[in-house]
Computed example of a mutant assay.
Amino acid sequence: MGQEGAPGGCNCNRAARSAFSVAMTKSYPKERMPIRFSRILLNEGNHYNVSSGKFVCIIPGVYYFTYDITLANKHLAIGLVHNGKYKIKTFDANTGNHDVASGSTVLHLQQGDQVWLQIFYSGQNGLFFDPFWTDSTFTGFLIYPDQDFLNEADTKANAKDDS
């Protein structure tokens, strides 16, 4: 037998949670700026900022992001941005009817990282909002947190229990 290890602990009551789903309430947002989705469907942890249009990572780990954007009257060139760099871009050529552009990806984020959507090409801003017909949505959620983050949370929980 080896030496006795440090007392175990569990931060079980404080699960790492981060998820959001937001929808548009306005057509044709400003180009080359974060799109502000102002209708909150879910904002677990309040990590999506309605004022800035950005998701801010508080819990480092692996996240899934997806968007479904309705377009009308114009083409759409939209991209998912991570800390100022495009990670994916979607282009949809409007054929005169309403259409949907979508994209999704998985990203590893560090604490403080930011993720948002923006129109990346001037004149290609067909993002359309109709309150009676359809929604354009942006969604993201934590798949799993970094182990170091969990270990640190357990250490802090154990220290609090010892005092």
Rank of each mutant, 00 (worst) to 15 (best):
P7K: 14
N11Q: 12
N11Y: 01
R14F: 12
A15G: 09
A16C: 12
A16L: 13
S18C: 07
A19L: 04
A23S: 12
T25R: 12
T25M: 10
K26G: 06
K30Q: 10
K30N: 11
K30H: 11
M33Y: 10
R39Y: 04
L41P: 02
L42R: 07
Y48W: 03
Y48C: 00
V50C: 01
S51I: 10
S52Y: 03
S52Q: 07
K54G: 02
F55G: 00
V56R: 05
C57N: 03
C57P: 14
I58Q: 14
G61S: 09
G61D: 02
G61L: 06
V62I: 13
V62H: 13
T66L: 07
I69W: 13
T70D: 01
T70Y: 15
T70I: 13
K74S: 14
L76P: 08
L76H: 00
I78K: 12
Y86I: 03
K89G: 03
T90D: 03
T90A: 11
A93F: 08
T95S: 14
T95W: 05
V100D: 00
A101V: 02
A101I: 00
S102F: 10
G103W: 06
S104D: 11
V106D: 07
Q110I: 09
G112E: 07
Q114E: 09
W116T: 04
F120Q: 09
Y121D: 15
S122V: 10
G123L: 11
N125G: 05
G126H: 03
D130Y: 12
D130S: 15
F132Y: 12
T134A: 13
F138Q: 01
T139I: 00
L142Y: 06
E152G: 09
A153R: 10
K160M: 03
S163F: 12
